[in-house]
C-alpha cells in the first residue's frame, strides 16, 4: 500500500508534464526591436534591426523572422522605416535600407538564418498615416507606398534566391484597404510567385473593414487575393471572442507590446502560428522548455 502513493504521484506528474507541452509558434521580432530590454522608442531603427538579426540562442538565430514598419512621408514623398512620426530619426531611415539589412542577413553563410534553419519570415506593416497629424493616404500616396513595399519584396526575394533561402513575406496594415490594394497592384506576383517564396495578407481581428467573404480565404486556400491571417492582441479582446476566432481554424498571429502572463496564456490556449514579440529570447526559451 505504501508503494502506491509514489506511483500515483509519478503518474500525475507525468500527466501534467505531458499537458505542458509548449506550442511551437514562429517567433517574429516585433518592430525589428527584440535584442534588448523593451523600449518602444527604439522600434524600427536600423540599429535595433541589426542587433535583433544578430541575436542568437544556442548558436542559432533566435527569431524566425522580423517585422519592418513602413511609413509614407507626405512631406518628403518617401517611404520611411519607422513606427510613427514622433520617432523618426534625422537623417531618416528608409524602408529600402531596412530591406537591404535583412537581405544581407539572408546572404550570410550560415545554416541557421532563422531558428528553423533556412526559412525566414518578414512581416511588412504599412502605416496608415502619412503625416504627424495622422492624415490618411491620397490615392497617389497609396500607390507609392505599395510600390515601396514591392521594392522591398524584390530586394528580399533576390537575396533569398542568391542564398537559396525559403522566404515568407506577410503584409499588414491597420487600414485593411491598404492590404487589399496589394493584390490589385500591377506588381502583385501572386501568393506563390516561385517555389521558395510565399506572400500572405494579414488583418487585425478588430478591424471593421473585415467582411464575411474574408472567411473563404481565412479558412481555405480558395481565394488567392484574400486575407490569410488574423492578428490579435490577447488583452484587448474578450477571451470568449478569442475562442471564437480560434474555432475558425484560421492562421492566427498573436502580437504584444510586452510579454505578459496573459500573452503566455494566449500562446498555450490558442496556439497561434506566429507570435510577434519584442522579447524573442524569452519566447524562444519558453518554447524550448
Amino acid at each position: 500500500m505504501q508503494r502506491t502513493k509514489p506511483i500515483l504521484v509519478l503518474a500525475v506528474c507525468a500527466t501534467v508534464s505531458a499537458c505542458d507541452e509548449r506550442p511551437q509558434s514562429l517567433i517574429i521580432c516585433h518592430n525589428a526591436n527584440c535584442a534588448h530590454e523593451t523600449n518602444p522608442f527604439a522600434d524600427d531603427t536600423l540599429a535595433s534591426l541589426t542587433d535583433s538579426l544578430e541575436l542568437t540562442y544556442l548558436g542559432r538565430t533566435t527569431m524566425d523572422g522580423v517585422e519592418l514598419d513602413t511609413i509614407w512621408d507626405r512631406q518628403g514623398a518617401r517611404c520611411l522605416f519607422g513606427h510613427d512620426f514622433a520617432h523618426i530619426f534625422d537623417p531618416a531611415e528608409t524602408g529600402m535600407q531596412a530591406a537591404e539589412l535583412v537581405a544581407a542577413h539572408l546572404r550570410k553563410p550560415t545554416d541557421f538564418v532563422s531558428w528553423g534553419g533556412n526559412r525566414f519570415f518578414v512581416k511588412i506593416e504599412l502605416k496608415r498615416e502619412v503625416t504627424a497629424l495622422n492624415d490618411p493616404h491620397t490615392e497617389e500616396e497609396r500607390l507609392a507606398h505599395l510600390a515601396c513595399a514591392y521594392d522591398m519584396v524584390d530586394v528580399l526575394r533576390a537575396a533569398a534566391a542568391d542564398a537559396s533561402r525559403e522566404l515568407e513575406i506577410m503584409f499588414e496594415s491597420e487600414d485593411v484597404e491598404l492590404v487589399r490594394g496589394l493584390p490589385r497592384h500591377p506588381r502583385w506576383p501572386g501568393k506563390d510567385p516561385d517555389d521558395r517564396t510565399r506572400l500572405r495578407l494579414i488583418a487585425q481581428v478588430q478591424s471593421t473593414e473585415l467582411v464575411l467573404t474574408d472567411l473563404t480565404s481565412l479558412t481555405t486556400n480558395d481565394d488567392d487575393d484574400g486575407i490569410d491571417i488574423l492578428s490579435f492582441h490577447t488583452s484587448r479582446l474578450p477571451d470568449g471572442l478569442q475562442q471564437s476566432f480560434y474555432a475558425l481554424d484560421a492562421s492566427l498571429m498573436l502580437w504584444m507590446l510586452d510579454a505578459s502572463l496573459e500573452s503566455l496564456y494566449a500562446m498555450g490556449t490558442y496556439h497561434p502560428e506566429y507570435v510577434i514579440t519584442g522579447e524573442a529570447q524569452l519566447f524562444r526559451r519558453w518554447e524550448e522548455f
Binding site: 505578459s260 502572463l261 503566455l264 524569452l282 524562444r284 526559451r285 519558453w286 524550448e288 522548455f289
Partner: peptide
C-alpha cells in the same frame, strides 16, 4: 514561468 535553463519572474 519555466523556460529553458531557468525561470522568468514577474
Amino acid at each position: 514561468v519555466s523556460i529553458d535553463r531557468g525561470r522568468h519572474w514577474q
